Computed example of a mutant assay.
Amino acid sequence: MPEGEIALALAELRSALEVGLARIDGQLALLVQRSDQTDKAVEDLEQRVAALEKGRWPLPTIAVLTSVTAVVLTVLGVLRG
């Protein structure tokens, strides 16, 4: 193989390698961007869950108070009736 053909083949190989690396760099940048978006979405979701958990605590208490009130009213109804 003459030197000119070898140089041409090496130049083509180098060009193909540069194109491939540029494509990989672009894909990596996209993955980093998506990862950042996912991190932000997870953080937002954690904050929403925490807010829901804080607002949920009275529900069991309200259920117990309602049950106790129903029992007291039933007992009073039986005693008066």
Score class of each variant (00 low, 15 high):
1 M>P: 09
1 M>N: 09
3 E>R: 15
3 E>P: 08
3 E>Q: 14
4 G>T: 12
5 E>V: 11
5 E>T: 14
6 I>V: 15
8 L>G: 09
9 A>K: 14
9 A>G: 09
10 L>T: 13
11 A>L: 14
11 A>Y: 05
11 A>M: 14
13 L>F: 09
14 R>H: 11
14 R>N: 14
14 R>G: 15
15 S>T: 09
15 S>M: 06
15 S>L: 10
16 A>M: 12
17 L>I: 14
18 E>A: 14
19 V>H: 12
19 V>L: 13
19 V>E: 15
21 L>C: 10
21 L>H: 11
21 L>D: 13
21 L>E: 15
21 L>Q: 15
22 A>Q: 14
23 R>K: 13
24 I>A: 15
25 D>Q: 14
25 D>I: 11
25 D>H: 12
25 D>Y: 07
25 D>G: 09
28 L>A: 13
29 A>L: 14
29 A>H: 07
29 A>C: 11
29 A>T: 14
29 A>K: 15
30 L>S: 13
31 L>Q: 12
31 L>N: 13
31 L>W: 04
32 V>R: 15
33 Q>D: 13
33 Q>P: 04
33 Q>G: 05
34 R>G: 06
34 R>N: 12
35 S>L: 09
36 D>C: 07
37 Q>T: 08
38 T>M: 11
38 T>W: 00
39 D>M: 11
39 D>Q: 13
39 D>T: 13
39 D>H: 10
42 V>C: 04
42 V>A: 06
42 V>T: 06
42 V>S: 03
44 D>Y: 02
45 L>R: 09
45 L>F: 02
46 E>M: 07
46 E>L: 11
46 E>Q: 13
47 Q>L: 04
47 Q>A: 11
48 R>S: 11
48 R>Q: 12
49 V>D: 04
50 A>M: 03
50 A>I: 02
51 A>C: 07
51 A>S: 09
51 A>Y: 04
53 E>G: 02
53 E>C: 06
55 G>F: 01
55 G>I: 01
55 G>R: 02
56 R>A: 05
56 R>V: 05
57 W>R: 10
58 P>C: 02
58 P>L: 05
59 L>W: 02
59 L>S: 02
61 T>D: 05
61 T>W: 03
61 T>C: 03
62 I>T: 11
62 I>C: 00
63 A>Q: 07
63 A>V: 01
63 A>R: 06
63 A>I: 03
64 V>C: 00
64 V>D: 00
64 V>M: 04
64 V>W: 03
65 L>Y: 01
65 L>D: 01
66 T>H: 06
67 S>C: 03
67 S>Q: 05
68 V>T: 06
69 T>D: 00
69 T>R: 03
69 T>Q: 00
71 V>R: 05
71 V>S: 01
71 V>T: 04
71 V>F: 06
72 V>D: 00
72 V>R: 03
72 V>I: 15
74 T>R: 12
75 V>S: 00
75 V>A: 07
77 G>Y: 07
77 G>F: 05
77 G>R: 08
77 G>L: 04
77 G>V: 01
78 V>H: 07
78 V>C: 08
79 L>E: 01
80 R>D: 06
81 G>F: 12
81 G>R: 08
